[in-house]
């Protein structure tokens, strides 16, 4: 029990080494997920590092990362497994001339050899524990979500022709969602819930310093403060952390040590990708300049 603090600190430091800074609540959820063997459901605005957290976790524990990018219309053939029917057809044609009984051929055709494992099946049949990332689950249909329930609670998959495949190792599962659709209660119950928001200026300063070699700490601090006020605007697309890093790169390349209004105005297009957003941000900067 008393080690928990150390474990947590170790986890935080380890993740930081891979380039991901997380706060204590986030680290706690990761720690609990590993201890309880439960998936983590990560929600939050776009660009706060929902996907990056699983990548950092995989890197730190040196586990393979298996990623399932969800999209509308994804089905089990793309996510779970598929029979390699072309190979099956070829096989049937190849044995057509020989004297073989039908049952035998059928048995052969529905065996491991003709099975194409897709990410979910790969994740649970992997001999060493892996990290499974199910990205943007809110894009899939309800039916597909139901399919995930068996996998996430029992860590097993039922293939009608083969039987039930149990996990050889329990994968660490991350599920990300942009909350564009209400997820089912059943899925939510099975997961630990982690809501990631944009970092506070202090944390963002640290992120900028970690990610941008040679940035002046004063500049990083001022950038974080500016980003915070930008994110308070009513924008079509809020600047993400990745864009903030690009912005910092641009500013350091320009040789800045502190934030100057003129440089900000010329580099705003790194942060804002809509004309309306650009105008709003520019107005704020100009107003600030007058004061």
């Amino acid at each position: 029990m008393s080690n928990m603090k150390n474990d947590l600190r170790e986890l935080q430091q380890g993740l930081e080494k891979t380039g991901y800074i997380c706060d204590t609540p986030t680290a706690t959820v990761l720690y609990l997920a590993a201890a309880l063997g439960k998936p983590v459901l990560v929600e939050g605005p776009a660009g706060v590092g929902k996907t990056a957290i699983s990548q950092a976790y995989a890197e730190y524990y040196n586990r393979p990362l298996i990623r399932l990018q969800c999209y509308e219309g994804i089905d089990e053939a793309k996510a779970l497994y598929e029979w390699n029917y072309k190979k099956q057809l070829l096989h049937i044609q190849a044995v057509a001339g020989h004297e073989l009984n039908v049952a035998e051929v059928e048995h052969e055709v529905f065996s491991d050899e003709f099975l194409l494992p897709r990410p979910l099946l790969q994740a649970i049949t992997s001999p060493e524990p892996c990290v499974l990332l199910i990205d943007e689950i809110d894009k899939v249909d309800m039916e597909f979500e139901a399919l995930l329930l068996e996998l996430l609670s029992e860590y097993q998959v039922t293939i009608p022709e083969l039987g039930t495949v149990c996990a050889r190792s329990i994968p660490m599962v991350f599920i990300t969602s942009n909350a564009s659709r209400e997820l089912s209660e059943a899925l939510k119950r099975r997961c630990l819930y982690l809501f990631l928001d944009f970092p506070d200026p202090e944390l963002e300063t640290r992120i900028l310093q970690l990610k941008i070699p040679g940035i002046q700490s004063e500049l990083a601090g001022q950038m974080a403060a500016a980003l915070r006020s930008f994110r308070e605007l009513d924008l079509k697309k809020t600047p993400s952390i990745a864009e903030a890093i690009d912005w910092g790169m641009a500013l350091t390349l320009m040789g800045l040590e502190t934030l100057e209004a003129e440089a900000v105005l010329t580099t705003l297009n790194v942060l804002f990708k809509y004309r309306e957003d650009l105008d709003k941000a520019r107005n704020i900067v100009l107003k600030e300049q007058e004061v």
């Binding site: 928990m4 603090k5 947590l8 609540p25 706690t28 720690y31 609990l32 309880l36």
Partner: peptide, 10 residues
């Protein structure tokens, strides 16, 4: 039961 409660965020 798993976390250390003296760490309030945890």
């Amino acid at each position: 039961l798993l976390v250390d409660w003296s760490l309030e965020p945890a």
